[in-house]
Design a protein around this nucleic acid. Sequence first.
DNA 1: GATGAATGAGGATTCATTCAT
DNA 2: GATGAATGAATCCTCATTCAT
Lengths: 181, 181, 181, 181
Amino acid sequence: MTGLSLRILEAALKTYTSKPPQNVSIDEIAREAGVSKGTVFYHFKNKREFERCVFIYSIEKYFSWAYDELERKETEALKRTIKKSLKIAKENPRLMIFWYYVLEKELFSGDTEFAHKLYSQWFGLLSSLLKDMGVEKPEQTAIVLMAMLDGISIYSLFIPDLDIDEIGDLILEFVKGRCKR
Amino acid sequence: MTGLSLRILEAALKTYTSKPPQNVSIDEIAREAGVSKGTVFYHFKNKREFERCVFIYSIEKYFSWAYDELERKETEALKRTIKKSLKIAKENPRLMIFWYYVLEKELFSGDTEFAHKLYSQWFGLLSSLLKDMGVEKPEQTAIVLMAMLDGISIYSLFIPDLDIDEIGDLILEFVKGRCKR
Amino acid sequence: MTGLSLRILEAALKTYTSKPPQNVSIDEIAREAGVSKGTVFYHFKNKREFERCVFIYSIEKYFSWAYDELERKETEALKRTIKKSLKIAKENPRLMIFWYYVLEKELFSGDTEFAHKLYSQWFGLLSSLLKDMGVEKPEQTAIVLMAMLDGISIYSLFIPDLDIDEIGDLILEFVKGRCKR
Amino acid sequence: MTGLSLRILEAALKTYTSKPPQNVSIDEIAREAGVSKGTVFYHFKNKREFERCVFIYSIEKYFSWAYDELERKETEALKRTIKKSLKIAKENPRLMIFWYYVLEKELFSGDTEFAHKLYSQWFGLLSSLLKDMGVEKPEQTAIVLMAMLDGISIYSLFIPDLDIDEIGDLILEFVKGRCKR
DNA sequence: GATGAATGAGGATTCATTCAT
DNA sequence: GATGAATGAATCCTCATTCAT
C-alpha cells in the first residue's frame, strides 16, 4: 500500500461521502486525488474492487477502536461500544449511506461472501463477549444485537430527532435481559 | 389506475425480483409487460417515481395482512406478525433486495420524506399496540423492534442458515421484557 | 431496414474504406451519417454485429451481379466472373481490406460460422457450375479456385503492378485443365 | 539479439497463438516472459515493430526448412513443400491467424513494404524453381501458386474437414499443367 | 392513449508509451 | 540494462427521456 494508494482511498472516501454514491465516478475521484484516471485502475482492478477497498479502509478508519473494546470482554466495554457506534452513525449519515451502498451492491449481485466475511468477525467478537457475560444463546443474541444497531443506523437517516442515547439504553436492556441469573 | 398500469407494475415487480435491481431498465419491464417503453413513461412520470410505485405496490401485495393484524392490538397478533414478517423476508430475498434498493435510492439522494412517511404508519400502528400491551416507551420500543426486524431481514440475505424461528423468539422476549409488570 | 439504417450503413462503408478499419469508431460513423451515436446502437446490437451488417451490405453492393452470372452455368459466365472479380479487387483495395478485416475478426475470435455460411453459398454456386462444365471433383476445384481469387486479391494490395488480366487467364487455364475430356 | 530478447519473442509467440491476437497486450507478454513491461520497450521500439519481429521469428521457426527445399530446384522438393506447407497450416490454425493478423495490420495501414519484401523472397525462390521445371510464365505462376496456398490456409480455418492432401494434389496438377511439353 | 425511433450525456475500462530510479 | 508506476487518450455501450405520429 503505497502513499498514492492511500491518497486515492482518502479522496474516494471524501467524494463518496459528499454526494450520492451512485453518482460518483472514477473520474471524479481521480481528479480529487490529483492523479489520472489510469492511476486508479493501475492500483485497483476495477470499480467494484476499488469500492470494496474504500469500504474496508473506512471501517478501519472509523471502527478500529471497536475491535479493541470488544476484545476486553467487559460489560462496560460493550456498553461503550453500543453507545459510540450509534453516535458515529448519527454523526456520519453519509458514511452510513456509503457503507450500505457497498454492502447492497454485493448482496444485489448475489455475492454474499464479502458481507459474510465482514460480519463474521464482528459476530465472533461480540458473541464471545456475550458468552463471557453469561448471556444465553450468545451467537444468536450477537446477531440480533447487531441487527438492532444496523437497523437503527439506517433509521437515524430519516428520523432526524431520534434520541440515540435512549435507544442505546433500550438495546442494553435487551442484552441484560438475556443474561442468565 | 387502469388495467395497463397494473400490468406494468406486475411486470416490473417480476423483473425487479428476478435480477439485480440496478440492472433493470425500463425497456426490459416494458417488454415483459408487453407494452412500449413510451407507455411506461405515459403512465409514470419518470423512473424514480415509477420505482416508488412498484415499491408501494409490492408492500400492498406482500404486507397488507400486517395492517389488519396490528390493528387488532393483541399480543398474539404481534407474535404472528413478527414471525410471519421474518418468514416472508427469508423466503423472498429478492423482494427484500428490491425494497432496500428503492429505500436507499431515496436516502442516498437525501430525500428522507418517502422513507419517513412509509415507516411512520408502521411505527404508529406498532407503538399503539405496544402501548396497549403495557410496554414502557412504546414509541422507541417500536422503532427498536422494527430495526431488529429490518436488520435481520438483511442479515438473512447472507447468513443462509439463520434460524428465523429462534430469532423471532429472541425478539419477542425483548418485547415482553419491556412490559411493565 | 429503414432509410436511416441504410444511411448509417452507407456512411459506415464510406468510413471503413477511407482509413484503416481498426481505427474506425462508431462515433465517427455516426458523425458521417449525421445521426447520434445512440442511433447506431439503436439499429445495431453492438459494434461486432454492426460490422457484419456493413460487410453483408457491401457484398450485396459490389457482388450481387456474381450470383446472376454464376447461376447461368456457362463457361463464359465463369470467365467473366473471374475477370470482373479480380478487377473489382484491384480497383477497390480499401474494400478488400475492409472485407478481410471483418472476416478475420470472426476467425480470430474463433467464430467460424459467419465465414462458413458466407463462403458456402459461393462454393455451392461455383461447384454446381463447374460440375456442369464437366470438371472433375467440382467441390474441391471450387474451393481452390476461390482460394486463388482471394489470395490474388490480397496480393494485389502489395504488388501494385500485378497484371490481373494475365493472372485471370492462368486461373482459367487451371479450370479448363481440370475438365474431363 | 540477447537471450532476453529471445525469451520475450518466444513468450510472445506463445501468447499470440493462444488467444485472439487483437487481445494480446504487451503486459501479458512481459508477464509470460517473466520480465517487466519496460523491458519489452527497451528491446523493441514499439508494439508494431515488436509484432513484426515476432512474425519474422515465427517464420524462421516454422518455415526455414522451405528455403532449403526450394533451393534444390527439384520437382519432388516442390511437391514436398506444398504438402508440408498445407499440413503446417492445417495443424497450426492459431499460427496462421497470427500471421494474417500481422500482415493485415501492415496492409491496413497502407504500408506495403513489409509484405512486399517478405513475399518477394518466396516468389523469387519459387519462380526460379518453376523456371527450371520448364513452367511457362514462371513469375506469375509462382504468384498464383502461393495465392492458392495462402487462400487454402485461410479456408482451412473455417472448413474443418478440408482434405488438404487432395487439395495439394489439385494444386500440383495446376503446376504440372503449366509445364511446357 | 400508445408507440418506438432518436437522442446524448455519462462512465468504465484498456493499454501503448514514457521516464525517473 | 531493467523496472514498474503513472499517464491519458480512445472507445464501446447503456439507458432514461423526449416527441412526432
